[in-house]
Nucleic acid binder design. Structure first.
Lengths: 193, 193
DNA sequence: TGCAATAAGATACACGCGTATCCTCATGGT
DNA sequence: ACCATGAGGATACGCGTGTATCTTATTGCA
């Protein structure tokens, strides 16, 4: 399995770091968050735990770095389906799908073990929703009044909470409920005040 | 400090269990979730870890049991201020206050370490909100149409998520935003369809 | 080309978790 | 009053985390 033919050469700097992130991602894919061990990552790369702790202060930080390196940012592109409803549903599905790609238990473990959700991560979802609302405004679909940040952030919060509490990404039904029962009514309400 | 004058007598059954929960609560109050140790609880009671593991399968379960035993259920009574807005704000504040009483880091730790939020816990918040809405209906303040569960559950989710993500209970400002920007508009929208 | 600075790698430690094992005390049925 | 049963209590184990310390290889600069 891992007869890891470790080179006699010592890798350093970025080369080593890439190998560590690669191995960490491999571990996550193979065994999920529960089985993820700093030790296993170190062994797979042919180095020792100290090298890892020099770069990342805790297991969660390494996992986060590995996920970032391999899964990229949460929302890649802004959908443009021609209607606000379509765009919102597309965004919700994309976000949930991204969670599934990372792996349910990895995402859940990360969210719960991290001391603080990174600022950058928190901003992604509201920004994306702001953009699809702007598109809708340009089409004259909704009014021009501002939609509060709390509304824009809500879908992301609900999806992340679902990951933590249910250990599963929201079903299509739940995503539709978020859109039709919560988000869209609020956008229309606030935008047309 | 703890010269715990342990009785030579062996306590058993409920008596022992109460002592364990008491000691666990004491530990939580004293050092928070981070400093909470199964070992410390056992020592404080003058017993050994095995006794604890016979009752609760993991640290989180013991913490949950201790919190339950000492903090009771999340929402004690349904407010009746005379207006839906008043009732909703009162409920939100009560819920947040309860979180603060348990201790921010304890609540956050619990939510994140638990595999599954207990069904019972999940139901409390929606039920309370349903009741204040019913009161508002009786006053003729809102329409009779049903308000979806997703709406009723949302405030609890937002508050719990805040505990996990920010390691803090929501500020008064945030609670007001939840009420005025999210919850109340949705209730009015759905109830009058 | 040689040598100091720096990072890699190897160990070892203390700690807490969760499990397993074995002995000992309290209890309740006879 | 006795004794089998079952729960309490002590102890040790394996594992992983995170820290600290020491040796060894690599690098880039003189």
């Amino acid at each position: 399995m891992h007869t890891d033919a470790r080179p006699a050469r010592r890798r350093r700097g970025p080369e080593l770091e890439d190998a560590l992130l690669e191995a960490a991602w491999e571990q996550l894919r193979a065994g999920g968050y529960a089985a993820f061990t700093i030790d296993a990552v170190a062994r797979a790369v042919g180095t020792s735990r100290a090298v890892i702790y020099r770069r990342w202060p805790a297991r969660a930080a390494l996992v986060l770095a590995a996920v970032r390196a391999h899964a990229g940012t949460v929302v890649g592109h802004i959908p443009d389906t021609g209607s606000l409803e379509g765009d919102v549903l597309a965004l919700l599905h994309e976000f949930a799908e991204r969670m599934r790609q990372v792996g349910i238990d990895v995402a859940a473990g990360l969210f719960s073990e991290l001391d603080e959700i990174p600022e950058e991560t928190k901003g992604v979802v509201p920004t994306a929703f702001r953009q699809v609302i702007d598109q809708a405004r340009a089409r004259g679909e909704v009014g021009a009044a501002a939609v509060p940040d709390a509304v824009l952030a809500m879908p992301g919060v609900l999806i992340r909470y679902s990951m933590i509490a249910e250990r599963a990404a929201p079903s299509d039904r739940e995503l539709q409920n978020i859109a039709h029962q919560l988000f869209l009514p609020l956008v229309r309400y606030h935008a047309s005040r």
